[in-house]
Design a binder for these strands. Structure first.
Lengths: 239, 239
DNA sequence: TCTCCTATGTTCGCTACCGAACATAGATTT
DNA sequence: AAATCTATGTTCGGTAGCGAACATAGGAGA
């Protein structure tokens, strides 16, 4: 039933020309990441970059008073730990596993060496980083102008886009942490979506029922980010 | 009275070793940029990067319904148009001159060539881009959790940090566009700051009176971004 | 001087969201 | 079966910010 794991399940790695991929492949280490695991913490030296295949990772900012907000989400479309090759070595955000699964990791030294070859991988990483900029910008705008209802739709679609299944394991409490709102607000918004038959959920299991209706309901932020990812990272970008 | 213009007034250009700077210097074109000028528009091909010296530029996202929000601000500490060397060629944001002044610009081809040399300039540009990521992330968080009062303090301090003078030419209406709130909200918040004797303003002229009090009043977002810029881009970074 | 425009001030009702407290029922452990 | 824990549902009063409408006053130009 379950497919064998392959680094090529990650879109960035899949985009690499054979020669470049062959050079990296022996260095790629498969890791299983459980829900809630922290891949790196705010301000701490990052040791590896991660290329998620089936896992989804949230970049979360946690404030002094404990309040938090998600600033971006990374699945098999991206890489976790861009500050390693950007030169900063660390970030102000926390990388939290939002959906359990697998990822391939590379040691910091390895990715930096690969980046410095200035080949297809560098090109790819830079474009991905710009896509990440877009996602953060749109998150800022969405936080400013849109309702919890709309943001929940966006968040769910972003998550389901990065999942192979139509079921997400995630409590309303955790979603509230990501969106930076109260759990009660998520309960209400999720109730609306369930009553409208767009999703079904039950104690930490959320199932997507009606994607078209969901896409009709979501704010523009979802589409803008999705199109920009497709523009910046078409499937054959590096080939 | 007025100093002669020099590209070295921009911190990034000032950080470059003499040899690298000498190579670029003949290509740098001084431009005067008036308040309200658009350096590039969302989705449009970017022709030049700009290194502000005395000008301040807002990266603004404008939504379909016309509502807007600032996602980052660039002064003599940075460069406008990172997507040129990041590979995307364009961005979803608009670059709007928020405070009139001067900037030096480079043609897209030139900056891309310089970037591809993989020398100190590339290093600098990548670290600056990470600083920009930080600023966007913090903007997203601030939009989520902080009041208009706090955000106005942050915005004013960010602006005054990038100005040589203690007077900013800016109406409440424009500030409201940047913050993505109503003009009335800015009127009220600014009134509070004026009554507390932190600023003085009068028909489009804002004067900073009491910076220490302002820094005591601002939310953590200001300090986080400022410290991260200092960490990523210390004055002698590339030398 | 008069007029017009622009920047700012003020008010009112409304809504989304907050913080807190408490209820309930499925799931898990004993 | 009982006890406990966890996820979700519900309510209530409070507040920040919204949208709209209108007032006022400084500055610029006729």
């Amino acid at each position: 039933m379950s497919r064998p794991h392959s680094p090529r399940q990650n879109h960035l790695l899949a985009s690499l020309p054979a020669a470049d991929y062959a050079r990296l492949e022996p260095q790629l280490e498969l890791v299983e990441v459980p829900l809630g695991q922290v891949l790196y913490e705010s301000g701490m030296q990052i040791r590896h970059v991660h290329f998620p295949t089936t896992a989804i990772v949230s970049l979360l900012y946690v404030m002094q008073n404990g309040a938090s907000a998600e600033i971006a989400v990374v699945g098999n479309d991206g890489i976790v730990g861009v500050s390693l090759f950007m030169g900063g070595e660390t970030t102000i955000s926390r990388a939290l596993v939002q959906s359990a699964g697998h990822a391939y990791r590379l040691r910091g030294k390895t990715i930096k060496e690969e980046f410095c070859r200035a080949g297809p991988m560098q090109h790819l990483l830079l474009r991905y980083t710009q896509a990440l900029l877009t996602q953060m910008a749109q998150t800022a705008v969405c936080n400013r102008h849109h309702t919890v209802d709309q943001q929940l739709c966006r968040w769910l679609l972003l998550s389901f886009d990065r999942l192979a299944t139509s079921e997400l394991i995630m409590t309303q409490e955790l979603i509230a942490n990501m969106l930076g709102v109260r759990r009660e607000g998520v309960t209400e918004a999720a109730g609306n979506l369930q009553r409208a038959r767009l999703i079904e959920y039950h104690r930490g299991h959320i199932k997507l029922i009606d994607r078209p209706a969901m896409e009709a309901r979501v704010c523009e932020c979802y589409g803008v980010v999705k199109r920009e990812f497709e523009r910046l990272l078409p499937p054959d970008i590096a080939k």
